[in-house]
Design a protein around this nucleic acid. Structure first.
Lengths: 232, 232
DNA sequence: ATTGCTAATGGAACGCCGGTCCATATGGAC
DNA sequence: GTCCATATGGACCGGCGTTCCATTAGCAAT
């Protein structure tokens, strides 16, 4: 019988373990070695204990990684304390902050999920909702729009960032794009009419700008419906 | 030394293995048991062979799952043969087809990635691009817009669909949403002002509609910039 | 102080996995 | 029939997540 939450209501001993401590160490190892490199044995060694002890505070590896990813998400809006300026541009700032946080911890990108259950994922959705409520959108659409934005932020960030884990670290991002561009050029124009004439844009493609471009499309759609084109 | 592509230029023997055969069997096992349940041993047994033989046609498990996911993606637009009606609504149909395909094979959702290298992922982006080119958008924006839509489709589908794998199959989707709603209601309104007053919308939330709602926002943003509000 | 109990520890062990190795077989080319 | 690249499949390796359990640290009551 073990606790998922390793609360220490009683004092706690000297070099006491705790979930926070474990998750923190896990984040470091994940940054350094990636998800595949994180091992309970290795983590235990880093904390000067045995694997068994960790399971008192964390129920399994999935939960550990989820908690670690949630901590990364928390870092995203730690820097952006509150609700500045106009709602839509505040949404943009928030979204980019999340993207940047995940960019610094690529392993986390595929583990932030919605609908949220973990603390910081909840906080993110709440902040988005609060901002959406300020846009003048009718109240019955708040939830759907907030969720859509939340999904976009985490989902598209994951799409953009996660693939980097796979690719060999020895090959630079630019080289990879160049290789991809060349492969596209060699495709049959009959089967791939669009890709074969679009490789140029791929070469000078910047992930972060791409994320923002799509975000702007989404937020433009929001503005359109908030202030309809035909004001009848 | 082994081939990644197990071409059979020479005839091939009786019950010959092939990459297609293996990937097909993998899809079945993945549908039945999920990603964790797929094992080279099990797959080998299903094909009446040994694990070692599989590695002649597939270089490792990551590649196998990626190929399986790409096959699922292929099913998405197999049913929707070509480019019907108006461009934007054709984009919507295409997007929903992908969502539905991933919905039927949840394990695949987190494995369709962009920028694409696999055959059907490439096809998807090409189709999107071709449709975007028909919207009257200036050519220099085609790539960015197409990529944004592609990211939205795969990324948001993954966000919506992937979590279901984790949750116990014994608990229904509706029960899960009701549980989540209740948990949100118990949050502190001071910390989560938005969530605590929005639980009602969560209860009658439908994933597919949610996907479409966000998609419409995105496509509205596209229309806005394609036919600007202030035409001058 | 002594005792009893719970929270917590950590190392050994279990079962299984992805992946490799290699002895063997198949079937076309000559 | 001989040869050889193609292909097979079972044994095996190292390592993983997880469980088990003997042991300890600290608190409360005596």
């Amino acid at each position: 019988m073990q606790r998922t939450r390793g609360r220490a209501p009683t004092g706690g001993r000297a070099g006491a373990l705790s979930q926070e401590l474990i998750v923190g160490a896990a984040v470091s190892l994940l940054d350094e070695l990636g998800e595949r490199g994180l091992t309970f044995r290795l983590l235990a060694k880093a904390l000067n204990t045995g694997p068994g002890a960790l399971y008192w505070h964390v129920s399994n590896k999935d939960e550990l990684v989820a908690l670690a990813a949630d901590q990364v998400l928390g870092q995203a809006f730690a820097a952006h304390p509150s609700l500045e300026e106009e709602a839509v541009s505040a949404l943009r700032v928030l979204a980019v902050a999340v993207f940047d946080a995940l960019d610094r911890h690529p392993w986390a990108a595929s583990h932030v999920s919605a609908p949220p259950t973990l603390a910081n994922a909840l906080r993110l959705l709440d902040r988005i909702g609060t901002l959406v409520a300020r846009t003048g959108l009718p109240a019955e659409r708040h939830f759907a729009v907030s969720t859509a934005i939340s999904y976009y932020i985490t989902g598209v960030s994951a799409q953009i960032i996660a693939p980097r884990i796979t690719h060999d670290a020895t090959v630079s991002r630019d080289d990879f794009l160049a290789q991809t561009a060349q492969r596209w050029e060699e495709l049959d124009p009959a089967d791939y009419p669009f890709l074969t004439r679009t490789t140029q844009h791929l070469r000078d493609h910047a992930d972060r700008d791409q994320f923002i471009a799509g975000l702007d499309m989404l937020l433009d759609g929001l503005s359109t419906t908030a202030h309809p084109r035909t004001p009848a």
